[in-house]
């Protein structure tokens, strides 16, 4: 303990930061249990009906609660399944490239779409998937012939997820490239001498070398399972495909246009957070058991 005294001193600013900026305002979470009125402030607003759970009940009773929850989960899990590995694969492929210039060029160019604003990206997506769009044309060579892709409920999730990969895979791969660069090169030398081919090197050196990064980022990703933001959804969807594209955030957004209800949004947000946190706790435990890697 004495030896670590310096460590506690070192981390003090961080603790203070969280106390002042995260915990001090945290009382505001009760807004979900109140009927918030801006003029009265959070503490002055009246408590919501049903022991404060009025907004949650109203949310769960909504005709579309089940559908929006399902859509949110489908999109999240699909993203996890496809968008999570994609940057890892890109990083691994880039790692195999010997030509430094090519490697740098690919890496730099591939992250550019990350910075294009969502509005522009979505209008490009709609352009490419229109019935005269280039992606539609490409797919027609494989027998697809049903016009604008975004008018079909079944195609929304693929378009959403794949376009997300297109936009972010480059940027997301940066952290893995950094992790790869931290692998001791002498291990590769030794392996080559031992006759290991590329593939074996990948399995026994590369992947283990970045495994901690992968696992930690995965746990964090699972902690975002309820977080499907409304912006991209709204830019891409239309009422004809609500059945697969209307998620919790977009539904709440439209409700907010009718009547701005801070308490209701807060209740939905709290619901999402509880589920997110629960997932993190569960997966953290699981990961600790299986791989020994965990957040805490």
């Amino acid at each position: 303990m004495k030896r670590n005294y310096g460590a506690y001193l070192l981390v003090l600013p961080v603790i203070l930061y969280y106390i002042i900026f995260a915990y001090k305002p945290m009382y505001g979470a009760i807004i979900a249990f109140k009927d918030f009125s801006p003029g009265r402030g959070i503490l002055g607003s009246h408590w919501a009906g049903n022991y404060g759970f009025e907004h949650f009940i109203s949310f769960f009773n909504s005709y579309f609660f089940g559908r929006t929850l399902k859509n949110t989960l489908v999109i999240s899990l699909s993203s996890l399944l496809f968008s999570f590995p994609a940057p890892i694969i890109l990083a691994l492929l880039l790692n195999e490239v010997k030509n430094k210039f090519f490697k740098r060029a690919v890496q730099t160019i591939s992250y550019m779409p990350h910075f294009i604003s969502l509005v522009v990206v979505c209008s490009l997506i709609k352009l490419f998937t229109a019935d005269t769009g280039i992606v539609t044309y490409f797919l027609s060579m494989f027998g697809y012939d049903s016009g604008a892709m975004l008018s079909h409920p079944d195609l929304f999730v693929p378009v959403y997820v794949l376009s997300g990969i297109w936009q972010h895979v480059g940027w997301d791969s940066i952290i893995y490239l950094a992790a790869l660069s931290g692998i001791d090169q002498s291990l590769y030398e030794a392996a080559k001498i031992d006759g290991a081919n590329r593939w074996k090197q990948m399995i026994y050196i590369t992947l283990p070398g970045i495994s901690i990064t992968i696992v930690i980022l995965f746990i964090l990703a699972i902690g975002g399972i309820m977080n499907v933001g409304y912006e991209k959804i709204i830019l891409l969807y239309n009422p004809g495909i609500y059945e697969t594209s209307d998620v919790i955030s977009s539904f709440v957004y439209r409700k907010g246009l009718l009547e701005s209800n801070w308490s209701f949004s807060a209740a939905v947000g709290l619901f999402n957070s509880v589920i997110n946190f629960f997932m993190v706790v569960v997966f953290n435990k699981l990961s600790k058991k299986i791989s020994g890697i965990s957040l805490w």
């Binding site: 009927d35 109203s58 009422p239 209307d246 439209r254």
Partner: peptide, 27 residues
């Protein structure tokens, strides 16, 4: 009544918008 009204209407609006598109497109 305001909250109740907004809750009912946001469900109804969603449904109506959806159905309008489906009816027009013949789906």
């Amino acid at each position: 009544d305001a909250s109740e009204y907004a809750t009912i209407m946001s469900d109804i609006n969603t449904y109506v918008d959806e159905m309008i598109t489906k009816y027009i497109m013949g789906v």
